[in-house]
Write a protein that binds this DNA or RNA. Structure first.
Lengths: 146, 146
DNA sequence: CTTGAAGCTATAGTTGCTAGAGACATTAGA
DNA sequence: TCTAATGTCTCTAGCAACTATAGCTTCAAG
């Protein structure tokens, strides 16, 4: 049995994150030691690894919740799991496409900046006027990492 | 002079978002009508367009705050603005690289799924075991859009 | 003049954690 | 065995960048 710290180390997940996953019901409530500390066995370890891996692949916690509940029903069809993965793939693809458009526009901006005064700066100028843009990079969906 | 609704429509920004930008000091406090409603002139409109455009290009509000304060000092060097844009470009590039790795892994997963039972599902299996992955897609930094 | 849309403030919720406070548990070394 | 350091406990609040809700007031059209 592992303490929460060892488990986190093993899975590459920070301790508060594990407690958070328990709190939102993604991990079951852990067994406790005599001194009320959480203890984890192999099953919990595998479940956490699953979560971590899915997070690494960009799945949301909601999607992971669904995937986990599917993985608990080995005899059902895997169509639902497949659909979740495909949706995630589509999401990733659309984010890539969008980021590539952004990259092009940022490159244009940066290259054109001659390094003079702000008043002549292409970066500032282009930001002030979308008409100066080559590509149509509107629409949201670009959020950065934490 | 535009009301907040008209301004939002013109700039493609929702009304509460404009109020939020004012609240965090990204937009100056708006003039008010006799009935206490916000009124915006051309300057505010340009400033909001700048913010919107920069957001579309993925700049954080903090970066935008810096860019705006730079654009208020037309005689200074534009090196700082250039640096901010270059940092954003680097950020976008690294996100693209990471997403491409994710895409490859998700494609592998989806293609291998034969569509049978959960117990045989490659999607579930791969998520449970990172060793089954071809690429090294670890590290965070993938957060989705809001 | 009335009605419905648009505006106001203030607060809370979203996602996926992370950080802090203050108290208890465990473990390694002297 | 004692002690000090580390680990763990709960609870609360904070991050980005909004979005949504509630309960009010103001405005514009018919």
């Amino acid at each position: 049995m592992l303490t929460i710290g060892k488990l986190g180390e093993a899975a590459g997940v920070k301790v508060p994150t594990i407690r958070y996953y328990e709190q939102i019901g993604l991990l079951p409530e852990a067994e406790r030691s005599a001194g009320n500390q959480r203890l984890y066995g192999r099953k919990a370890q595998e479940r956490l690894a699953f979560i971590r891996h899915a997070r690494d692949l960009g799945f949301t916690l909601e999607a992971i919740r669904d995937l986990l509940s599917l993985s608990d029903k080995p005899d059902q069809s895997c169509a639902a799991a497949d659909a979740i993965a495909k949706a995630q793939l589509a999401e990733v693809e659309s984010r890539i496409a969008r980021l590539i458009a952004l990259k092009a526009e940022l490159e244009r901006m940066v290259v054109q900046c001659a390094g003079g005064r702000i008043a002549d700066c292409r970066v500032i100028e282009v930001l002030g006027d979308h008409a100066l843009c080559a590509t149509d990079h509107r629409h949201p969906e670009v959020e950065p990492a934490h």
